[in-house]
């Protein structure tokens, strides 16, 4: 018997457990906030520093990169204020990494629930996004304060670039996260693959160095340069450079330091990521029908 041969159900009856898309989750806002609160409570259970850990980790990361790349390898001379350049990239990578890493594990991690109770399963990757945002906001505040101290003043295009950069990172990471979360139910190799991607992500986007280095090395017309610049994460990082670093840098230094047409590229990358999110949501919805039995 195929779906086409199903008899219609009596008037007023519904099929239980029909998987719906991401947009249907507006109905489950309250449950979503409780899941996010649970996640944060559990993560900082019996921890003295609690949420402060979300400052300590990027802080240490920043210090290491600043001294190794900025001082030893002398990058801070070529990209002043280098601390701002570095940190604006790091916060984007951190946001992306936390969403993708946690979303990938979210369905398997909530296996006990998925196996026993029907819930819209998109709730789990989506709550990873919200938890990551909770960690991201204080970092953003530090970035803004640091930039102000370094002589940065906000400009309209910069604010637009910042908002676009955040939107792009969220959409791109959630799109990938939905895909990987669904595949991870059947193949646990996915988690390790994602860890690998996250490990190299910081090196394959212009966080520690600027994009001119890539252009000079491969040549401006090389397909490798094209590929590097096609990475939405590269664009998100550059949008953040435009937002928080560009206005603090000397004109002689900032000219040509970023990818060209950064705003246009940002809009294109966002459009591509929205399509990816749509595909990820469809794939996740389809595969979610067998989550309960495969876990």
């Amino acid at each position: 018997m195929t779906d086409a041969a199903l008899r219609p159900l009596p008037e007023g009856m519904e099929r239980p457990g029909v998987a719906r898309g991401l947009l249907s989750l507006v109905r489950d806002r309250y449950l979503l906030t409780l899941l996010v609160r649970k996640e944060l409570r559990v993560r900082y259970q019996a921890s003295v520093l609690g949420l402060a850990w979300s400052y300590v980790k990027p802080g240490a990361q920043f210090a290491v990169f600043y001294f190794v790349m900025g001082q030893f390898l002398n990058l801070s001379r070529s990209l002043p204020p280098y601390a701002i350049f570095l940190f604006s990239g790091i916060v984007v990578i951190n946001l992306f990494s936390e969403i993708l890493g946690n979303a990938t594990r979210s369905v398997v991690g909530n296996g006990a629930l998925v196996r026993k109770i029907f819930l819209p399963r998109q709730l789990f990757p989506l709550s990873s996004v919200l938890v990551a945002l909770v960690h991201f906001l204080p970092q953003l505040v530090i970035l803004v304060v640091g930039a102000l101290i370094s002589g940065w003043r906000p400009d309209l295009l910069g604010v637009v670039a910042g908002v676009l950069g955040i939107a792009l990172t969220l959409v791109f990471a959630l799109g990938l996260g939905l895909l990987f979360a669904a595949i991870n139910v059947a193949y646990r190799d996915t988690e390790n693959t994602v860890d690998l991607i996250l490990m190299v992500a910081v090196w394959f986007s212009p966080v520690l160095y600027n994009i001119a280095l890539v252009r000079d090395h491969f040549g401006a017309d090389s397909w490798l340069t094209w590929l590097y610049q096609a990475n939405p994460l590269t664009i998100a990082v550059e949008l953040f450079h435009r937002a928080f670093w560009w206005n603090a840098a000397e004109p002689g230094i900032r000219d040509g330091a970023l990818v060209d047409h950064v705003m246009t590229r940002g809009v294109i990358a966002l459009a591509v990521s929205v399509v990816l999110l749509w595909v990820g949501d469809r794939v996740f919805t389809r595969m979610s029908r067998t989550f309960a039995q495969e876990l």
Binding site: L6, M13, E14, R15, V42, A112, I117, F118
Partner: peptide
Amino acid sequence: SGVLTPDEGQVGVRGRIAGLIEVGAGFH
């Protein structure tokens, strides 16, 4: 309850449904 999806045939339910399949499944 909708946790499992039929391979063939179908299930229909009227009204809100609570599966007390395993109590405490969502407890942390």
